[in-house]
Design a protein around this nucleic acid. Structure first.
Lengths: 194, 194
DNA sequence: CGCTTATTTGAATGACCGTTCAAGAACTAT
DNA sequence: ATAGTTCTTGAACGGTCATTCAAATAAGCG
C-alpha cells in the first residue's frame, strides 16, 4: 500500500480555478499539470482522466460553496438580512470579474449540456440542493413572520436562483457595478414583497 | 472575378447549429465542413478561420433573432400582450430542450468570456441592442398607459433580460415544463406590476 | 527488514486539431 | 474567345491533445 502524496483539496481547488478560467474543453492536461503540480500519470491514477478530474473538482466546488452558504445563513440575525448579505456577496463576486469567482456549476453546465448527460445530471442535482437550501431559509423566514407572502417557498427559491443565474450572465456583459446592484435590489424586492 | 458558390445564410445557419450544439471549442473543423458542406479551404477563404466563422455566425444569429423580435412586436395589439407572447415563445424554446434553440449569444459569451475580449465585446453589444429594443417596447407600453409603473424603462428592460438569462440557465437543469412557465409568469407579474 | 502494492515520474504515443497550399475549375471582363 | 482573377478541392502539415507505459520510488504490513 501507499497513500497519495498530494493534498487532494488543494489539487482540486487548483483544477477548479483552471476549469473556471478556460472552460473544460480549452483546459489542456498541460494546463492542469501546471496548475495542480501533479504529473499526468498521477492525475490518471487518482482521477481516471480529465473528465474524472472535472467531476472531482465539481464535488469540491459544491462542498466549498455549501460551507460558504452555511456561514451566511448561520447565526440568529433576521433571515431577510441574511438573504440581503448573501445577495450582496454574490453581486460583489460578479463585479470583481475574476474568473475564479464565476460559478463553476453553471459554467460547466452550459458547456457540457447536450454533450455529457451524466455530468449534466450531476450539476443539476448540485444546483437543486442549493435551491432546496434556499427554500428552507424562505420557509424559516415565513415561520419567523419576516416574510408574509402566500407564495410557496419552493417557488420563491426557484425564482431567486433564476435571478442569480441571470445576474451572473448579465455580469458577463460587463455592465457598470451599480447596474448589477440595482438588479439585485429589484430581485430582493420582488422576492420579499408582500 | 468569381462569386462564392455557396449560400452564405445557409452556411452560417449550419455553423450556428454546430456551435450551439457542441460549443465553439469542441466543434472541430471537420464538424464544420460536414455541417456546412464547405471544404476547409473555402471556409478559410471566406471567413479567415474558425473564429471568423463564429463571428460571422454570431452576426447571422443576431439578424435572425432581430427579425423574430420584429414579428413579435409588430402589429397593433397591446404591448403587454406582445410581451406575454414573446415570453411564452421563449419558454417554449427552453422546454423543447433542442440545442438548436439555445441562445448562441449567451452560450458563446459564457465560453469565451475572459478568453477573447473582442468576441466578448461583440456579443455584449448584440445583447445590449436586444435590451434596448425591449426598453423601447416598455416605453411604448408606458405611452399607451398599459404600464403604470414609475420604474425606468431601461431598468425594466435590464431586469427582463436578466430574467430570460436566468430562465435559460434554469432550463438547462431540466426542470418540468410547468415550473418554467411559473417562473416566466412570475417574471411577467414582477415586471408589469404597478 | 523485505515483500507487496500503490503512486510518481516524465517521456513516448497515436490521434486529431486548425490551418495551409498547390492545383484545378469557373466566373468576369475584355 | 481568352486572359485574369477568384473560388474550390482535398491532401498534407506541424503542433498539440489526452492518454499510456515502464521504470523508479515509497508506504503499509508481516
Amino acid at each position: 500500500m501507499r497513500n497519495a502524496e498530494f493534498d487532494q483539496e488543494k489539487v482540486l481547488r487548483s483544477a477548479m480555478k483552471a476549469f473556471m478560467h478556460k472552460g473544460f474543453a480549452k483546459t489542456s492536461m498541460q494546463d492542469l499539470t501546471k496548475a495542480t503540480g501533479l504529473h499526468p500519470g498521477s492525475i490518471y491514477c487518482a482521477f481516471e482522466n480529465k473528465r474524472g478530474l472535472l467531476i472531482a473538482a465539481l464535488g469540491q466546488y459544491r462542498e466549498d460553496r455549501n460551507t460558504e452558504f452555511g456561514t451566511f445563513f448561520s447565526g440568529d440575525a433576521a433571515v431577510v438580512d441574511k438573504f440581503k448579505a448573501y445577495l450582496d456577496h454574490t453581486v460583489r463576486e460578479c463585479i470583481s470579474c475574476d474568473s475564479a469567482q464565476a460559478c463553476l456549476l453553471t459554467k460547466a453546465l452550459n458547456e457540457v449540456a447536450e454533450q455529457d448527460e451524466e455530468i449534466q445530471t450531476l450539476i443539476s442535482e448540485n444546483l437543486r440542493l442549493w435551491q432546496v437550501g434556499i427554500a428552507e431559509q424562505f420557509e424559516l423566514a415565513k415561520a419567523n413572520n419576516e416574510l408574509k407572502t402566500k407564495k410557496d417557498s419552493g417557488h420563491l427559491a426557484r425564482y431567486f436562483v433564476m435571478g442569480i443565474y441571470g445576474l451572473r450572465v448579465f455580469a458577463q456583459t460587463r455592465p457598470e457595478a451599480n447596474i448589477l446592484k440595482q438588479l439585485a435590489d429589484q430581485l430582493y424586492q420582488d422576492v420579499f414583497a408582500a
